[in-house]
Every structure is written in structure tokens, then in C-alpha cells.
Design a protein around this nucleic acid. Sequence first.
DNA 1: ATTCTGTGACTGAATGGTCGGTCGGAAATT
DNA 2: AATTTCCGACCGACCATTCAGTCACAGAAT
Lengths: 217, 217
Amino acid sequence: MVLQNDQKSQKRDLIIQAAARVFAQKGFAGTIMADIAEEAGIGKGTIYEYFESKEDLFFAVFEWFTQELTSLAMVSVSTLGGTASERLMTLGESLVKAGMGMEDMFSLSMEFWAASVSSQMKNRFKEVFKQVYMDFRRIISALIRDGIERGEFRPDVDPESLAAVLVGSWDGLLLQAWFDPAFDPLSTARNFMSVIIKGLRANPSQERQGKTEHRKG
Amino acid sequence: MVLQNDQKSQKRDLIIQAAARVFAQKGFAGTIMADIAEEAGIGKGTIYEYFESKEDLFFAVFEWFTQELTSLAMVSVSTLGGTASERLMTLGESLVKAGMGMEDMFSLSMEFWAASVSSQMKNRFKEVFKQVYMDFRRIISALIRDGIERGEFRPDVDPESLAAVLVGSWDGLLLQAWFDPAFDPLSTARNFMSVIIKGLRANPSQERQGKTEHRKG
DNA sequence: ATTCTGTGACTGAATGGTCGGTCGGAAATT
DNA sequence: AATTTCCGACCGACCATTCAGTCACAGAAT
């Protein structure tokens, strides 16, 4: 049977997802192509119909992964309503939850990080990572800037810096949770966000208000 | 010549440090034992006089690394004077600076993370990581608790949560910097800390004061 | 019959780890 | 102090294994 393009890409996806599971569990080096073939329920040779090499496949998994993650964040943000504080809070929670839910996927992230150090394709990995982090920072900083414009947040915070730290702390928290099952990133994040929000409030003495001391449009 | 114990351990350290450099540059998988031997200026066989296996050596590098890092933090903290805010700020800066300075070393961290996913010894790696993160959190949370007791910080923040986030965001920030050379983790951290400090202040309207609304001795 | 897809046995390159042998120096013996 | 013995640190050629990638063939589709 001659596969249609969409069937072809469907099978590609099948392989990618099977590979993702195996890589997540065994790491890049620990994974052999035969494992992936078995997981996907196909022959080893077939993989090479769709991918150049093991590294090429790994990179494809990486791209798939970042896509999933980014669209998750996009959806979260676009769905959210309420004040900037609330949206920030909710986005944070849903990202941490996502990270905790797909715990396998987090271990995949670690493999990707490592790949950006030493694989043949480290520069391609780095480039994509850079872009992903930028995207996330952009999403968050827009949210913060919005809060400032509404007069909800102090005008003198730097949205970019704060966004970077939030993005960073999600990684950092999940990392700690990865190593210590007793560590609860969700309640940690919650507690933390409330401190942040207090620091952000334009007028700390009131819960919320529209008084505008803000500059910049 | 029969080596004394201290000569013996000196050579061990020599190998560890040579290995650290090579692993940092080429990653675990990309490193071959011959490289390490060459870097250390010894024969390959000699390495096996001191270490069971490649993984065993890698783990030894890991232990050495965490020791270095922890003692750096210890020294920083014990040296620092001033208010809790100032000490927090300074500790943060010096850790970020350290991370930036030894950029090779940061890439080593990534390798260690990956090792905790998939190496044979993943549980040993995880255990050590867990301990290291706990130590760091303990250092920071003690600092915060101190600030609360002095009445400098609001009594209703959770020192453990905040400490975890700070620790996490150092990792997270350095990670972003790793991928994007244009990203400046230091000024980001500075900006961020000032938001945090504002959120922490016991009495936000004054710069600093000793008024004690605090409970708990 | 022809074309396309799937396959898994096979191969060769790469490399972790071994082991028999070397050699500089310490200790024992003279 | 000269000589011999002994030790163990050091070495690197070699071995055994592991796997990524290939390819000749089988089977399906048309």
C-alpha cells in the first residue's frame, strides 16, 4: 500500500511518541533502536524509513515535545480570565500541574538539556530551547505588563525580569520535586506566588484598585 | 614506589578534576576513558586503579562537584553581614556569579541531571541531589526566618517555600542563560530580588524598621 | 508484474574494561 | 654501601561486547 502523506506523517508521529516514552524512561544513551521499534510495534528498519538517525529521531521528539508544551501554555493563558494576579496564579499552577502529571516528560526535558551540552546537534537543540524560553517569557511578561497598565501592579517592576524568574522557577521547582518525592512543588508555588503578588501590588494597603500612578502606554 | 595515602588521594583528585573538565566539555557519553587519561597525563589503565568504572568515576566527579558548590554557599553566607534583605540579595548575586563564572561547570550539572534519569546509578545520584537541594533550602530558609524574627519580613510568608523558589530560580535562570548568551541572569536576579524584598517587607511603607508585630521567638 | 513498504539478521566501528608485563624505588641482606 | 629482592603503581595492546545503521528479501498493494 502506498501511504498517503497524512498516513505517512501519522506513522511518523506514532514512532515519535513511542520513542518519547522509551527515551524518557531510559535516556538517550540507554535507549537502543530495537526498544523503540518494539514499543512502536514495528521493525527496526522501518524507523529508518522515517528518520535519518537516532539523533535525528531524538531531535524530532524534542520538537514534538516543545510544541506540546508551548500549546499547553498558550491554551492556558488564552482561556484564563480575571485580574492579572489571578491569571498569573492560575497559569503558574497549571504549568506546575502539567509538569507533575507528565513526570516522564520531565525526565525527557533533562535528556534534552543534556543533549544541548554534548550531542552532535547541540546547537540545534540550544537554538530551539532559546526560542521556547523566549516564548514563555513573552507570554508571562505580556501578562505582567497588562497588570501594570491596568494599574494593578506597581509600575516600577521589570516585566521581563520577573517573567524570566517565573519561568526559571518552574523548572527549578520541578527539578527539586524530581529528586525528592516529598517535595511539593504545587503548594510551594502557591505560597510563593502570594509573596510575589504582594510585592507586585501597586497599592499594597488595598486589595485592588485602579489608581494610576503608572507611566508608559 | 609505594604511595602514601595522601599521595594516593592526591592522584585521585587529579583524575577527578581532569575527568570533570572532559565530562563538562564532551558530556558523559561523548567522553572516552582515553581522553581522561590524556587530560590527566597518565595511562588509561591507571584510572582503573582508582575507580571501578567510568560510571564510578563520574559519580566521584559529581560528589566532588557538590562539595565545591556547597562549601561556596556556606562561605558566602557566613561571611555576609547586614540585614536579612541585604544578605539574601548578596547571596543570590554571588551564586549567580559563580554559576556564570564556571560555565563549564554548569554544563556538568546538566550531565548530572541526566545521569539521575538513566544511569545505572540513578538512585545514588538522586539521593545526593536531594540532599544538596535540601542543604541549600535550609541555608536560605534560615536566613528568611531570621529576617522574620527580626521583624524585617512579614511573619506570614513561608520561609521553606520561598527558599525553594529561590534555589529553583537560580537553576532556572542559569539554564536560560545557558541557552541564550544574550540573557543576563545577574541583572534579572537583581530586579527580581527587589520585587521579592518588597513583597517580604513587614511594613511596606517604610524602608526598614524594627517595629515588631512578629510572633514566634 | 511492478512498485512500494516493512523487516530483522548482519556487519563493522567504537570503546569500556582487562591483564600480563615493566620499572623505579624501598627494604632487606650482605 | 653495595647488592639483591620485592613491591605495586603504571601502562597500553588487546578482547569482548554492544549497537547504529544497512540491505537483501518478503509481502502487500495496485
